[in-house]
Amino acid sequence: MSAISPPAERIWWKQPIDKLEFTWIAIAFVWSLVMFVMMVYWHVAGGQNLSNETYKTTKEMFAAKAQAVVDKYTVRAGTAAEKEFPVVAPPAGSDIYLIGRLWDWWPIYELEKGKTYKLHLSAMDYMHGFSLQPQNINIQVHPNYDHVVKITPNQSGTYSIVCNEYCGIGHHTMVGRIYVK
């Protein structure tokens, strides 16, 4: 009798388990526990965990907060290659607001290596995807939610923010920038 017929022995649940089969189950079980503990362990000891700090917001409220930071800390107007967006250099430790909208990431921030910032993410219309390259850190960005992520850049350079959540016909043009000094 095979797998497409009823089990030949009516009392199949009393059949002994093959030794190798049992060994494999035990190994697989231990590995499952290791992987589970690994996630918990990283919350305690790891340096890269996605923050749970989220607030309900509105598009107007979030845009106003972003505008306030831009008004206060803009260091220069962007060049044509920077879409003439304001380049903003807030002090370490401050709250910075990044707007995702069709089809820009606004504004451009200039951060210091090794310093921590509270990055607020929200979208003005559809959902967007914050994809920091070439780091490859990827975070979903929702409208009407303010997601606060503490970031600490560990290398200087020019970083791009690619949008990786489909947001319409101009999705592929939605790229932003962060400078780390």
């Binding site: 690994m38 996630m39 890269q48 996605l50 995807g129 490859n136 850190i137 975070i139 990786n164």
Partner: peptide, 12 residues
């Protein structure tokens, strides 16, 4: 599907 490792992969 590992919580933190997903940051490397999400929507790529």
């Amino acid at each position: 599907g590992t919580e933190q490792l997903n940051l490397l992969i999400h929507n790529t």
